[in-house]
Nucleic acid binder design. Structure first.
Lengths: 190, 190
DNA sequence: AATTGTCAATACGCAAGCGTATGGAAAATG
DNA sequence: CATTTTCCATACGCTTGCGTATTGACAATT
């Protein structure tokens, strides 16, 4: 579903974005060059001009996802000086329906592939690090901050899967922002 | 890696167990009848005597997993009358390195398949229900109990993925049971 | 002893999907 | 205007993996 007839020629970036769409909704294993080509309105012949093979495409797409995500955190989270507010903002951001979150959730599934596992580990460790840092700024000692960060991040990951698994079954009863606030209240000391 | 030379003939149950092994470590998409046959020391010809097709095998395996899991909860959790103790036991059980948990984690990944999504939803809703019930017994009103259950369960799911993603990177610093107790203390009111 | 039922091996057809080879059209460049 | 570069289509070969067909071996039954 691309807005057809916009530009005449494709670049690697277009392929990466289309690939991320597939990863977000169907996982890495579902990335098939012929299908993505069809989505973009071309055939396989085009793909192998831009990329060497399927794996290169996926790696490039994941790299793009990783750096885009890092940029968002930098802009939206690290710009907040107060650690309380910052953590609150992070929980709110986590509950937002962003493609970035979907991708993270599916990657957790496809970590059998070593190149997926690599990106995943990097991203996870970095996220844990800045959560831990914020909790330390609040006053937690290192050990506790580490556990609190791990727990907070687990809530995030768990939530992603819940939302996917349960569908409407649970955004009816209580809306998402409410839940995010509830969680934040539980995990961030007053 | 089966203990070869034990019994001369296979039954559906053997196939289901071998399938769950694959699902636990590589996910549903990795279930290939020819490979599982090799694991069991036979060839494809045998498989199609026991099952109609690949999907039937997976469905049967998942059904087995679901009922086995239900049985464990019934034995280990519901036998505990006090809700505080019961919830504590549940968190401890969650941190145990059981195959059942691995399977749940990979299923979250492979929920593109409708038959996986179905089992997953059933299991998740049931688990949320008994968590919620226990929190209500503690004194939470329904709405809060629901959110608390969701959050607790999210920590569980998130933890499963963390453990997989981070590998040794985090069972060094603090052992798993310690973390489980820390989480329980945070989520279960004194 | 003959027959039937149970479990498994082998061989085949078939579709999906990756990667390659080759040629062509359109745009940039000289 | 000629030529090179850029981007894409078509056609092919190859592998993987599902499902079927056929045959066989061994055990249970009569």
């Amino acid at each position: 579903m691309k807005t057809t007839a916009k530009k005449k020629s494709l670049n690697p970036s277009d392929w990466e974005k289309a690939t991320l769409d597939v990863i977000a909704h169907q996982g890495v294993s579902a990335v098939a060059v012929e299908n993505i080509a069809k989505d973009l309105g071309v055939t396989k012949g085009s793909f192998y001009w831009h990329f060497a093979n399927r794996k290169d495409l996926i790696v490039a797409a994941l790299k793009r996802w990783q750096s885009d995500d890092k940029e968002v955190i930098k802009q939206e989270i690290w710009s907040i000086p107060d650690p309380h507010e910052r953590l609150n903002a992070w929980f709110l951001l986590s509950a937002q329906p962003l493609q970035s979150h979907l991708i993270y959730a599916t990657l957790l599934a496809d970590r059998q592939h070593d190149f997926v596992a690599k990106v995943l580990k990097e991203v996870t460790l970095e996220r844990l690090a800045y959560l831990q840092k914020s909790f330390q700024e609040i006053g937690y000692v290192e050990g506790q901050a580490k556990q609190q960060a791990l727990m907070s991040y687990s809530v995030y990951v768990g939530y992603l899967h819940m939302a996917k698994t349960l569908h409407g079954k649970f955004k009816d009863s209580n809306n998402i922002e409410n839940y995010a606030k509830y969680v934040a209240k539980q995990l961030i000391p007053a």
